[in-house]
Design a protein around this nucleic acid. Structure first.
Lengths: 118, 118
DNA sequence: TGACATATATGTTATTGACATGTATATTTC
DNA sequence: GAAATATACATGTCAATAACATATATGTCA
């Protein structure tokens, strides 16, 4: 790899989870649509559907979301997901944790800029 | 797990790498001492030595740091590490990426606070 | 009818970091 | 001077995560 061309990407681990919870707070919906909201929240073009559905199922097992099939509406039959009360609490916990992460990164950047004034 | 008691920790993946580069910018040093600087940069009590030495070796293989044994100084013989020019560039790349991560988290928090005024 | 979008789902794999363990020397304490 | 502890470097193992590939079935449009 040529100097200055490393693929360094500072990713927040499991960021998709709080992002999904935030997307769900926008109202109950099905996976495929949630994927679009999610992409907007995260700021990417698209998200991985496979992992999204897996995450939804695991969140449901933990009581973070609840779901039921919706066959009434037009088109393809969908499974509609909704944030539970536990889910709201979990989102709050994530927000707290993300504030801390934000501060840790900010502290790093301050320390860098201190000795690297632009 | 009781409601409201999840262990959600928003960690930046591979954060130890930029933190180590920043610690190294403070001047050449050996692994054991770098571990202390590193802990301070990250804001934890201690870091995992095993992973640190593995990281140092892999960074050296990629030309990010250079090292040599120092048998002159008192006590235990140590290997001294130093940031190369490539290392400086990589740190810059990390800083750019971390600024973006910072902004992504900030955007998430703004979006959350929008509909959740304190 | 063939292509594409919608919708949900599972399988596989590399990367990462936590934890445990191993080795050796230096220093302190009793 | 023996034992405990700190310094210093290093490898092994494993679970969680996320990227990528694949599978399935239906709806829509040209």
């Amino acid at each position: 790899m040529a100097p200055g061309e490393w693929e360094v990407t500072a990713r927040v681990e499991r960021f998709v989870e709080p992002a999904l919870l935030l997307a769900l707070r926008g109202g109950r919906s099905h996976g495929y649509e949630l994927a679009e909201r999610l992409a907007e929240v995260i700021g990417v073009e698209s998200v991985d559907y496979g992992n999204l559905y897996r995450l939804l199922r695991s969140l449901e097992q933990e009581g973070i979301v609840s779901s039921e099939w919706d066959d009434q509406s037009e088109g393809h039959s969908k499974r509609e997901y909704e944030l539970t009360d536990s889910g709201e609490l979990l989102l709050e916990a994530w927000v707290e944790s993300l504030r801390q992460a934000d501060e840790r990164i900010a502290a790093f950047l301050r320390r860098y800029d201190e000795r690297n004034p632009t």
